[in-house]
Simulated scan of single mutants.
Amino acid sequence: MAFDAHAGTNKLARTLHKRIKSMSDSPLVLDFGKIESDYGLVTNTFPVKIPQGDYTVCRHVTGISLGTSGGSHGGHEYGDGSHSHSIPVPGLSPGNHVLVAWVQNEAVVIDVIS
C-alpha cells in the first residue's frame, strides 16, 4: 500500500474505510408496504405478514380529527364570524400502499402513499 510508511495516514484511511463499509452494510431504513385485508402489513423487503398490533402507526394515519379555529368574516348578524372546524383524517384501510420506516427491527407506518 502507498501509505504504509505513513502510519497516521494509514490509520486514517483504515478508519474511513471501516466507517464507509459499516454505512453500506446498514439495513434499509425506509420501505414500501401494503395493508392487507386483516390489517396485517407486508413490506417489499420483509414479505412475511406482520399482524396488526405488531407494527406501529404514526398518529396522523390513525384516523384522528384535527381541529382548526380562528379567522373571521362578515355576513353574520351576531358575533364576529369566528368559527372552528374539525377535519377528519382518514385512517388506514385494507389495500393502502404505505411508507414504512424500520426502527431497528420494528416497522413503523409513516403515511399512506397515493
Score class of each variant (00 low, 15 high):
63 G>I: 01
103 V>K: 07
52 Q>W: 06
69 S>A: 15
37 S>F: 05
90 P>E: 05
84 S>H: 08
108 V>P: 05
22 S>F: 00
26 S>G: 14
66 L>T: 02
42 V>C: 05
66 L>D: 06
23 M>T: 15
76 H>F: 13
5 A>E: 10
21 K>V: 14
5 A>Q: 12
99 L>D: 09
15 T>Y: 00
97 H>M: 14
3 F>E: 10
94 P>L: 06
105 N>M: 00
110 I>M: 13
63 G>M: 01
45 T>Y: 03
8 G>Q: 13
3 F>Y: 00
16 L>I: 08
107 A>D: 03
52 Q>L: 06
99 L>K: 07
68 T>F: 04
99 L>Q: 04
23 M>Q: 14
9 T>E: 14
108 V>R: 08
25 D>Y: 10
74 G>E: 11
25 D>H: 08
67 G>N: 10
68 T>G: 02
50 I>Y: 01
108 V>C: 13
16 L>D: 03
108 V>Y: 02
106 E>F: 01
73 H>K: 11
7 A>H: 09
74 G>F: 07
87 I>L: 09
40 G>C: 01
88 P>M: 01
65 S>P: 01
57 V>A: 03
82 S>F: 00
76 H>K: 11
89 V>P: 15
88 P>Q: 04
32 F>T: 12
11 K>Y: 09
6 H>S: 09
92 L>P: 08
49 K>G: 12
68 T>I: 04
27 P>G: 13
60 H>L: 11
44 N>K: 01
75 G>K: 07
21 K>P: 05
33 G>T: 03
109 V>A: 13
18 K>M: 00
27 P>C: 11
2 A>Q: 05
50 I>F: 03
3 F>S: 06
13 A>C: 13
105 N>W: 00
79 G>D: 02
65 S>N: 05
12 L>A: 14
100 V>F: 05
91 G>S: 04
67 G>V: 09
20 I>R: 03
80 D>C: 11
80 D>S: 15
98 V>L: 11
68 T>E: 01
26 S>R: 09
17 H>D: 14
22 S>M: 00
81 G>M: 11
102 W>R: 07
10 N>D: 10
76 H>C: 15
112 V>P: 06
66 L>P: 01
114 S>E: 07
84 S>C: 06
83 H>P: 06
77 E>F: 06
101 A>C: 07
34 K>C: 14
32 F>I: 12
80 D>Y: 10
30 L>Q: 01
52 Q>P: 06
13 A>K: 05
35 I>Q: 06
41 L>V: 14
85 H>C: 12
108 V>T: 11
1 M>N: 07
41 L>P: 02
98 V>G: 13
38 D>G: 06
12 L>N: 12
46 F>P: 13
1 M>V: 06
18 K>F: 00
5 A>F: 13
57 V>F: 02
32 F>L: 07
57 V>S: 04
93 S>R: 02
31 D>V: 04
48 V>E: 13
113 I>Q: 10
71 G>P: 03
16 L>Q: 08
18 K>W: 08
5 A>K: 12
